[in-house]
Amino acid sequence: MLKANNISKKYKTVQALSHISFEVGEAEVFGIIGPDGAGKTTLFRILTTLILADEGTATVDGLDVVKDFREIRNRVGYMPGRFSLYQDLSIEENLNFFAKVFNTSVKENYDLVKDIYQQIEPFKKRRAGALSGGMKQKLALCCALIHRPTILFLDEPTTGIDPVSRKELWQMLRRLKEQGITIIVSTPYMDEASLCDRIALIQDGVFLKIDTPDNIVAQFEGTLWGVSADRMSSLLQDLRKEPGVLTAFTFGDTYHVKVDPMKIKKKELATKLEEKGYQEVEIKEIAAGIEDCFMELGVNTKMN
């Protein structure tokens, strides 16, 4: 469905993307996960024919992104990271407009957007600018879908919206996948990675890894502990000073600590921390999540 081969893009001094290659299959939900400024939006713009890559080639639905850009524009749905609808038009007007722009009508493809549209329909007379973040994204998704695209590009659709809406949005994406639509979605939230069929971890314009979420987690090597205590602020520094501790990162309200089990044991670490005056010290062995893998990969690239 989509093939990218060795894509690079440079803005004046910043290398936004370097040598990106990947493939996405039909009806696959492909996640591109990485922090802000990693190059996600640039990649999306190249694949949606909005900008040209300096190097490399890409095809979308078998069409070249440079040569056949007009035909591609008929087939893709694109939802930019920034809310890009007309704020002074109502929900209804926005949707009708985008349907007409794509030479279709709301009626024709209503079944595709029905699930999503029904949630915002009670407010259809309201101006898009007055909607909540979640409703805006739902409307934007409707507008991107209204011409029944074969492939959907969603640039950070869940950024800045509430957890409930985030969950709903992902449920919708699963349903669209069932309808046979290929979805390329980017997100800075690593906990959304497990909702994709396959993911690519991107940082500083480089794909660190492409695999299924399960495989990426399975490939995590080493022992991981979750550590917490009463004085969290100084704990991280103290943990990093311990011999046998390889890495330590903040993870919600605990620290994830990767250790060399040959050098240090759980009890040992607990005692040492208590000697330093920490109370309520808790150390648990945990299974690595996708974030741990990303942290690890991120650290590795920085060290290189």
Binding site: T49, L50, S84, F102, N103
Partner: peptide
Amino acid sequence: QMGTMEVLLVSPL
């Protein structure tokens, strides 16, 4: 400026 041109460009228009 509003980013709508981006969406319009990725359309048959």
